[in-house]
Nucleic acid binder design. Structure first.
Length: 484
RNA sequence: GCGAUCGUAGCUCAGUUGGUUAGAGCACCGGGUUGUGAUCCCGGGGGUCACGGGUUCAAGUCCCGCCGAUCGCCCCA
């Protein structure tokens, strides 16, 4: 009756053993720290949502990469869907495992918009799902970190100038948070580039070449694929669907140069350059914000970035680390909140996945290992309790352990220590010390009798010359850990 | 959905034109005669060689199928 065939994890998912789980913890802790330190508050939503939430804004293209979810109680619904599918009709599942966070965020904000501060700064980190073919840096289940700034800090009767300034500040703020994370992980501006672009600017440049409004979206999608394509072939495709690309390139180059150079005559609205007659002021303003935040050397203006997503309305950016695929991406989406029933509210944000980030950190040797990793992940023991092998010490050990682990409500558990013992049967103290050190434990406590232990600091390998009474062991360890 | 490469121990891999009972290192477990850690010595558990067929006296090895993984394409929220 028992069928013991092993069941493998589903395609594109991971089993995380202690080392991998600690690595993931390292990343999520870094995300939390970066976003909290940049003033974002944590939120979260359901991991599955009504499928409509995603079809509403993005059309059917996305639906094919969504994992459908059925309630299991809804037998009739499932049956009806099965019949539809059998007839070859389109039949999306009623729920979808969330493929991204932005729609959830937009809904959450819209529902309470009136009572939320402007701007509202939220972050979240959790699992997301896409039914794609797994490949390097890409799985079907992954963690994603999102940071968003919704709404703008504005005076009561804002001028266009006020709005432009607040917009640039919000854009810079999310980019700064993203860069803050990368820097904190040990990455350098030499290896990382935040490529920043502006869809409005691109659109105006395309329109200057007589590209009609209805062709803008396909043109933007096409531009995004450019780097991967053969240049000649791309130019041909682009000419066929949109128009001649030669002028467009020229516009881009001139704009990038001028923005990064910060030429002053641009601010006055005039230019001797006949090709520069577009509204690059928003990007220029953003560039100045980035400079004042001290992160401009991480950034580069690159108007070949468009981002495939339909809902972006202005600034877009992506983060490239050396040759790897994008480690993060985001942009401004000013129309999304209203689409979910909220007041018209501008917003900007980005997402970063754990998969590419861990690849990058491991390739560059920036991912901690062994005891250091366990320590960072908060899993290395405070005290490793060892019996000296006498029956008296053996008998005393369990209660020593239990006392170290006990935490009080008054201290909110801060006085509870991570205490371990060996599960080996050997009485060889040297071997157990070896195990203790490997575990990353800070201290070893060798039980000498029913009343005394010898304390040893495993990090410095210094052992106390005198014994410590068991009654004061815990307070002594807390003191030495700086938690007393 | 399409293409390419690859599946031998927990991990990294060896395994001869097909030939006895499939190996090593690391890891894990135990011991090295009553207590201080690298190293070292001895011992141990672990494999239906991914799975299923076929060819053959004989298959880890050759053939077919299948599952899985990796890397690309498509797509990228």
């Amino acid at each position: 009756m028992a069928d013991n065939k092993p069941i493998q994890p589903p395609t594109g998912t991971r089993d995380l053993y202690p080392i991998e789980a600690a690595r993931r913890r390292f990343i999520t802790e870094a995300w939390r720290r970066a976003s909290i330190n940049h003033g974002f508050e944590e939120v979260d939503g359901p991991t599955f949502e009504s499928t409509e939430l995603y079809t509403k804004k993005s059309g059917d293209g996305i639906v094919s990469e969504i994992f459908g979810v059925f309630s299991g109680k809804d037998e009739q619904g499932v049956k009806a869907l099965g019949e539809k599918l059998a007839r070859g009709e389109d039949a999306p599942a009623p729920y979808a495992l969330r493929p991204e966070f932005t729609p959830t965020l937009a809904r959450m904000y819209a529902a309470r918009a009136a009572s939320l501060p402007k701007p509202t700064k939220w972050f979240t980190a959790g699992p997301f799902f896409r039914a794609e073919r797994p490949q390097r840096g890409r799985l079907r289940e992954f963690l994603q970190w999102n940071c968003d700034v919704i709404g703008l800090a504005l005076p009561e009767k804002p001028t266009p100038e006020d709005i432009a300034r607040a917009t640039a500040q919000a854009d810079a703020e999310v980019i700064a948070c993203c860069v803050g994370l990368l820097e904190q992980c040990g990455l350098k501006s030499e290896n990382v580039k935040v490529r920043i672009s502006d869809r409005n600017l691109i659109a105006s440049m395309l329109q200057a070449q007589s590209v009609s409004a209805d062709k803008l979206t396909p043109a933007l999608m096409l531009l995004d694929r450019r780097k991967k394509s053969d240049p000649v072939e791309f130019a041909a495709t682009f000419a066929e669907r949109v128009g001649d690309i030669a002028h467009f390139d020229q516009y881009c180059k001139t704009c990038e140069k001028l923005i990064a150079g910060g030429l002053s005559e641009l601010g006055s609205g005039g230019s001797d350059q006949p090709d520069v007659r577009f509204n690059f002021k928003p990007l220029h303003r953003l560039w100045n914000e980035l400079k004042s935040l001290g992160i401009a050397d991480w950034c580069v203006v690159d108007l070949s970035i468009a981002r495939g997503l339909a809902y972006y309305t202005g600034m877009v950016f992506e983060v490239i680390v050396d040759g790897e695929r994008a480690v993060a991406g985001g942009g401004r989406y000013d129309n999304l909140i209203v689409l979910f029933g909220g007041p018209s509210t501008p917003a900007v944000g980005f997402g970063m996945g754990d998969v590419v980030l861990s690849l990058v950190l491991q390739d560059k040797g920036l991912m901690p290992e062994g005891a250091e990793l366990m320590q960072i992940a908060g899993q290395s023991p405070d005290v490793f309790v060892i019996s000296n092998g006498t029956p008296e010490a053996d008998a005393a050990l369990p209660s020593v352990l239990a006392d170290l682990r006990r935490g009080s409500r008054e201290q909110r558990g801060r006085d509870s220590l991570h205490a371990r013992r060996t599960s080996k049967t050997t009485k060889n103290v040297g071997k157990i010390l070896q195990e203790a050190e490997k575990s990353g434990a800070h201290f070893a406590a060798i039980v000498e009798s029913a009343s005394e232990v010898t304390l040893k600091n495993l990090r410095t390998r210094e052992q106390d010359p005198s014994k410590t009474p068991i009654a004061s062991l815990k307070s002594e360890v807390l003191k030495r850990l700086g938690r007393g």
